[in-house]
């Protein structure tokens, strides 16, 4: 009973650790690292699901009868690609954020945004007074 589920439990711990990194870090790059860990653990879940004890890789050859599930492998191949695509785009946005704000710390950016908004409203009230 325990042995049959132990694998899934480890995967869940990994998934949650990844999710925790995403939500708790203030550094944008580290958030993306967290996403990576989270997604990779989900891949592990799928592959665990497809494993058959005593099976072999799903390449047909003489002398084997039990093969692991090829479908989950295909799904995860696709998902890995999706993951790296997201990572690349996320990093590109991070780089642009750094160029615009000169920081990639979430709290600092939020502070600068609030400052910015205050300034904008201040300007518009001045304009309103003048007119």
């Amino acid at each position: 009973m325990i042995a049959g589920l132990f694998n899934y439990w480890v995967v869940i711990i990994l998934m949650m650790a990844g999710l925790y990194i995403v939500m708790s870090s203030r550094h944008l790059v580290k958030k993306i690292i967290g996403l990576n860990v989270f997604q990779t653990s989900v891949f592990l879940l799928f592959i665990s699901m497809g494993k058959i004890s005593g099976g072999t890789a799903p390449i047909i050859a003489d002398g084997f009868t039990a093969y692991s599930n090829p479908l989950t492998h295909v799904l995860i191949l696709t998902a890995i690609v999706v993951g790296v695509a997201t990572t690349a785009l996320g990093l590109a946005i991070t780089v642009r954020i750094y160029e615009a704000y000169d920081t990639v710390d979430e709290d600092d950016i939020a502070e600068m945004d609030i400052e910015n908004e205050n300034k904008e409203t201040a300007v518009s009230t001045v304009v309103a007074k003048n007119t």
Binding site: L19, L35, T86, G90, I93, T94, I97
Partner: peptide, 20 residues
Amino acid sequence: DRRALTAAFRYLIMGTIGAT
């Protein structure tokens, strides 16, 4: 606006969590 970048990033994080 540069805030578009942070908005997009925030959406990316939320969206990817949702997709996962």
